[in-house]
Nucleic acid binder design. Structure first.
Length: 581
RNA sequence: GCGCCCGUAGCUCAGCCGGAUAGAGCAACGGAUUUCUAAUCCGUAGGUCGGAGGUUCGAAUCCUCCCGGGCGCGCCA
């Protein structure tokens, strides 16, 4: 199925050829409703290239343009824009095609890639906190969208399960552990002993040294320390899994840092052998002397004491993903502060000859009402699990107010879908680079660009079909997919609100692929908001069940399609649509 | 010091590989409801796009400089 945009673009290029002109400019959605549905600046670009009058060129192009039954005769406007307005019957026809398409018109990509997406990546021995929302939610949405477009996606949780912090955890485990607390709330106890050890270590050099010794023993494979480490990892994983269940986020592999331990020496040897790495002040370092940006920013891959750091691990990870997982594309959904680090890693990988497409997908921070990094009152990170539970609790309270007659089970289920959806949508609906201020009130509002607003549009649709089934059961059946009844899928678009809604539905296929251009799910979120808005307008203006045939069936079909696009769109963002709310 | 990111309505944000008179939502004000869930819709008002130059038919968007905020820069991850 082709979108209006690609159809018009083809006809434009035909018209240009017939007018003896080369392809130029682009055909895009109109910037303003006044200008119709689509516009092209082709004549402006050509006018500039050949120093001719753009308006005259535009007229020449229009004269050759085969509008067929797609649109009204194009018009020239402004400095030389050509504007296109779709015909209602063309929209009805296209919407019918979308309706009969499993994929709602979204084309599969022509160049399938194998993409490893590195996102989430929490640290062991620390609970997940609010800072993990963006990476987790953004990475998951990108994974869903890439997969839907037909790419081979491998979701990888690069867990921070190795590193110097374990010296302290093990020291704390051996000296400060309270077994009962550990049984009650394992992660809380591990965090406690870690913090306490950390405090002691900053005061007491002897403790610091003891921690270092524990770390050395762990890295040397000491049985006892390995056992302790394993236990800590297991406890942390339980906590992560709980959060992932709440969020409905799942990974294909979870290769944490420790997974790469035995590959690290080879990385350094390789770098030394190829001359990319060199010894400097006892450490193995990669310099970037020819790159102004990195000239004074060397990358250490083996410390003076022989230990490895996270640059080494990330290089081993590159090798594993490219050579073992056969990835040709790797997306790192990691906060902006690490951009220097990834520049270095990507540059080293390039020098070593890895040709995969590496992207660091950065994002801004989540701020509290005080516009500073979001923290608890005592200045600590806000635990994610508690935050998500509170989202559900708050959603539940609103449900109790608005719809108290729902069953207990329904309330719990809906509160979960709304609460989690609200948190995710609030994040995804904003441009990923901007810092945003966390606000319960805004994300759970039923008005404006929020998850509940979109979910409500879906609920209204489901409600119509519940009513329709009661009054006329056969309509429920006839809207099944694959039904050959010709009355189904025939759209009659008379009202302005119907035309607008149908037009929006046709745009879904144009929007989804755009998200991956610059990794912006907010484009999709924005579209869904506009779709829900168009639906609500339609809902107010056009009675469905009370209207006469054939409008009634047509409107039911429109509702059905809107529901499916909303549901699919939300699903691509990792958000669920409840039937009632 | 060097580098990266951000600065758009009172508030929260879109728009940024150049396009027409810069858009939403919230808050404010004015309307619509014997409802297919008003959990909504329609309307009004609100702007030197941080500032100054430059590039051109055209700049919020591209380039340079400046101001303001955030972050990062050799042995943590």
């Amino acid at each position: 199925m082709e979108t209006f945009q690609s159809l018009l673009a083809k006809r434009l290029s035909d018209a240009l050829a017939k007018a003896g002109l080369p392809n130029a400019g682009e055909l895009t959605p109109a910037t303003d409703r006044r200008f119709g549905d689509y516009q092209t600046n082709a004549a402006l670009v050509l006018g500039k290239q050949r120093s001719e009058n753009p308006q005259t060129l535009a007229e020449r192009v229009i004269a050759q343009f085969d509008i067929g039954d797609l649109c009204e005769p194009p018009t020239v406007a402004g400095a030389g824009f050509i504007n296109f307005t779709l015909r209602a019957d063309a929209i009805a026809k296209k919407a019918g095609e979308v309706l009969r398409d499993e994929r709602l018109g979204v084309a599969r990509t022509k160049s399938t890639r194998t993409i490893v997406i590195d996102f989430g990546s929490p640290n062991v021995a620390k609970p997940m906190h609010v800072g993990h929302i963006r990476s987790t939610v953004l990475g998951d949405a990108l994974a869903r969208i890439a997969q839907f477009l037909g790419h081979e996606v491998i979701r990888d949780n690069h867990i921070g399960d190795w590193g110097t912090q374990f010296g302290m955890v093990i020291y704390g485990w051996k000296n400060l552990l309270d077994r009962q607390s550990l049984q009650r709330d394992p992660l809380a106890e591990i965090v406690r002993i870690y913090r306490e050890t950390n405090e002691r270590a900053t005061r007491d050099p002897q403790v610091r040294e003891a921690c270092r010794q524990e770390l050395v023993r762990l890295q040397a494979g000491d049985r006892e320390n390995i056992d302790i480490w394993n236990e800590c990892v297991a406890f942390s994983m339980q906590d992560f899994e709980h959060v992932y269940t709440l969020l409905d986020v799942h990974y294909d592999i979870q290769c944490g840092e420790s997974f790469y331990n035995d590959r690290l020496p080879a990385v350094v040897e390789r770098l030394l052998k190829s001359g990319i790495g060199e010894i400097s002040e006892g450490a193995v370092v990669v310099f970037f002397r020819d790159q102004p940006e990195l000239a004074n920013k060397p990358c250490i891959v083996r410390k003076r004491d022989g230990g490895y750091n996270y640059a080494t691990t990330d290089l081993a990870t590159v090798d594993y993903r490219v050579n073992d997982l056969k990835a040709d594309t790797v997306w790192y959904v990691v906060g902006a502060p690490q951009s220097l680090h990834f520049k270095q890693i990507f540059e080293i990988a390039r020098r070593e000859g890895y040709s995969a497409d590496f992207r660091h997908i950065t994002f801004g921070s989540i701020l509290g009402e005080d516009r500073k990094l979001m923290k608890t009152r005592s200045g600590e990170n806000v635990p994610l699990r508690g935050l998500l539970e509170e989202a559900c609790k708050r959603a539940r309270k609103i449900i109790e107010e608005k719809n108290p007659d729902l069953s207990e089970a329904d309330k719990t289920d809906i509160a979960h879908k709304i609460g989690i959806g609200a948190v995710k949508y609030f994040d995804l609906s904003q441009y990923r680079m901007t810092d945003y201020i966390f606000s319960w009130e805004k994300m759970l509002s039923l008005q404006g660009n929020t998850a509940p607003y979109l979910q409500n549009a879906y609920v209204r649709i489901r409600s119509i079909f519940r009513k329709a089934d009661e009054s006329a059961p056969k309509i429920g059946k006839s809207r099944r997919r694959g039904d050959t009844d010709s009355s189904c899928g025939e759209l009659i678009l008379d009202d302005r609100a119907e035309i607008n809604l149908a037009k929006r539905l046709c745009q879904f296929a144009e929007i989804v692929p755009q998200v991956l251009n610059d990794f912006r799910p907010n484009i999709l979120a924005n579209y869904l908001f506009e779709l829900a808005n168009s639906f609500h307008t339609f809902y107010e203006a056009c009675p469905v069940l009370k209207s006469e045939e054939p409008a009634r069936s047509s409107r039911l079909t429109l509702c059905d399609l809107t529901g499916r696009v909303l549901q699919r769109g939300l699903d691509l963002l990792g958000i669920k649509a409840p039937d009632k709310m």
